[in-house]
Design a protein around this nucleic acid. Sequence first.
DNA 1: TCTGGGGTCCTAGGACCC
DNA 2: TCTGGGGTCCTAGGACCC
Length: 390
Amino acid sequence: MMAYFAHADLDAFYASVEQFDHPEYRGKPVIVGGLPGDRRSVVSTASYEARQYGVHSAMPIAQAVKLCPRGVYLRGNMGRYREKSREIMDIFADFSPTVQQLSIDEAFLDITGTEALFGPPRELAEKLKSKVFRDTGLTVSVGLASNKYIAKIASGISKPDGLYVIEPGSEEKFMRGLPAAKIWGAGSKTQELFRKHGLASCDDIYRLSPETLHSIFGQAFGTFLYRAVRGESAELFDDGRGSHSMSAERTFEYDLYDDFAIETELFNICQTVMWRLLNSRLQSRTISVKIRYADFSTEIARETFAEPVCTLNVLYDRVSALFRRKHRKGKGVRLIGAGLMNLENVSARQGELFNGEGEKERRLEEMILEINRKYPDAALRRGRSLLADE
DNA sequence: TCTGGGGTCCTAGGACCC
DNA sequence: TCTGGGGTCCTAGGACCC
């Protein structure tokens, strides 16, 4: 049986959720990401009305305000977006037993062999689109193709509220007709390389030998490009295996120079990471610290320990020691972050670390983390001093 | 107009072991 | 008697995605 995939992608997701929840925003340019006057905020999502002013994702809010001063600016509500996302993913699951969620607002559906239930792929896509709209008030763009990579490209062709079908057998022709800028997985640096080598279209890349592609782009990426421009399955994305990580970071409105202020922020970030770790039933032996200085230069330090992190105290001790080793004093700090890599499921052995005193400490920490999560402003200092007093 | 936050994957090179 | 090659683990940095 011929494999067939749908890529379903919500249109301007965060902005559309806001317009659904607040009818007074409908038809207006909505910009989610920050309020006018916020320093160092960027646009997370711009509604299609806002895009007409030239506003787009990743643009600094200050620039968006210049382009679109009358827009509706919002900081956003991730909890609400996640809730809406779950509703939509549940709908996707009605149409395919194999839904691979790629991010909060998009997924691949393996729709191979679903004809008997939903009719031909185009019909399935139309049913899916109208069900999503009926049940959630949001529009979704769908691409249909014989492999996931092409389905992903297809869903972007006729956004918003689009439906684009690549007939089996026409994958290569479709890709070769696209500009190189449309290659998913080739970002700004690669686009620069394309320009440098005079590669304007996918067809230009198609004409290069595998050897040339490898010499320009490296082994893995060269192979990826070779396959992508032929309309072959080019799997850039996670196949479900592989390592996972968990991190939190914060950019400050004004660069920090004060050690105590920096340590307090670092502790705050460790709390966030620890809270998520405790709720995930995962563990990790590798910590990372990220520092971005006022000049935007960014450094990352990692360290792997023999024993996994199991309490906030341990996490904070390790993170702050690594931070102090890496930190160049006197340079303004724009961002700090901390994370855990190579996450694995909590082992039986780890359970032994939680007996007696360890268990008591962990319970206390869980309480503090819970309080701080509920009342972030009130409990922060208390949390830190409680731990410091031990 | 200076550039968020949370992820994934790839590469190159060093340490160490057999 | 100054030097092989493979495997594994680890670190730092970069590119990309939404």
